[in-house]
Design a protein around this nucleic acid. Sequence first.
DNA 1: ATATCCGAAATCATATACGATCCCGCGTGG
DNA 2: CCACGCGGGATCGTATATGATTTCGGATAT
Lengths: 229, 229
Amino acid sequence: MSVESKSQQAYRFIRERIDDGRYVPGYRLVLAQIAGELDVSVVPVREAIRRLEAEGLVTFQKNVGAQVALIKETEYLHTMQTLALVEGFATSLTAPYLTPEQLGRARAINDEMRRTLEDFEPHRFTELNLEFHAVLFEGCPNPHVLDLVHRGWNRMRVLRDSSFSFVPGRARASVEEHERIVELIEQGADALEIELAARQHRTATLDAVLAYQADHKPASAPAPQAVAT
Amino acid sequence: MSVESKSQQAYRFIRERIDDGRYVPGYRLVLAQIAGELDVSVVPVREAIRRLEAEGLVTFQKNVGAQVALIKETEYLHTMQTLALVEGFATSLTAPYLTPEQLGRARAINDEMRRTLEDFEPHRFTELNLEFHAVLFEGCPNPHVLDLVHRGWNRMRVLRDSSFSFVPGRARASVEEHERIVELIEQGADALEIELAARQHRTATLDAVLAYQADHKPASAPAPQAVAT
DNA sequence: ATATCCGAAATCATATACGATCCCGCGTGG
DNA sequence: CCACGCGGGATCGTATATGATTTCGGATAT
């Protein structure tokens, strides 16, 4: 029972491709084409795209069509700033409820991250970074805040290169901050203290990313409009 | 030119009714009925409802239909908590950009609020309260955060009685806090200080509302499913 | 009296069809 | 050579039609 509705199916189809980068920002989503690939009619696809639009992953222009949202530099900054805010708060909210077992898992993940530093596995590092924070949000008493965190993550994923949390010269500090956050939680530190530590952790990463990009990115502004598959 | 699309029209139609309370939480949104009222087909109405669903104003059940979201007590608390967070941050972000003129307007609104206290005009008070904060968000450099604030306000509006920001015994303190926030901004206070002041301002209101409701609400749990018009 | 099953009504979900709008390239005139 | 307008192709926007699912009331059996 409960066969997934076709609009739901279409939603996941597109979403998946945006998340893993097959549909890069700027990629045009043509209703008829996607409908054809999925072997459904255009109506469910439209619904899916409208939903993605409401989530900010896709922009839609009347009588023209939809494309994966182009996130400008400034918007990236805004999203990260917001993410720092809600992640920090979520961390402080969840802190009192975390069990020693969960904190142990967080530590284990962080140790693993430390290891990937030596072996230089940036992708694994990024992955573990997400896991680490996910553990710290387990059991967050405010699902609404958690929802905002996830929205932020999704938006970040649209431009993967930037969500890439491994920044040379910053990664080690990041691991240390993780350690410190776990310690604060263990000590039952003040909620505000935890919040600000977690917020600063994210903000520092943002600054590092920006500095890194400013150093390494030439003045090229490649036009998207790429083709997938 | 640029005639509003019918799905947009449907969206506004429904949205308006949710906002002003004609469609109370739990009210069933029947596609064909709404389509008939607007004299359009069901397809655009579906889209509108899907969008409202993504925004959290409406819940949708496959093969059953949509209804205005029922917000539970705890969820109300969560939303308010989140709102306190993002409003506080938005206030601190905007603070450095506010001109004396804008601060003057904020003060004027607050003075007006003080006046409504004496004349006992709770509705006007609530209205002005929104205006006051809206002024403080003018020119917020992070539209993303601002978007979250508006989302929060929308959600609040779904259950108007609770968004009613006039609470006996609390209103006066609220006005004083407004004054203090404006002062902090004028003095060019530290961003964090402003943020926490604004956050606390909202949190205190939340507490007051909860305390008030606990005092005054009998153990009745009226079932919605009301009918509009 | 109560539980269960059946069928009709209501409503949703999707496909298909057609008209509307926009974009872009080509031709014409300056 | 450039500006302008026109037409065709691509794509969207919506209406209509039909099949699918759920819901609910009533009949029947225990």
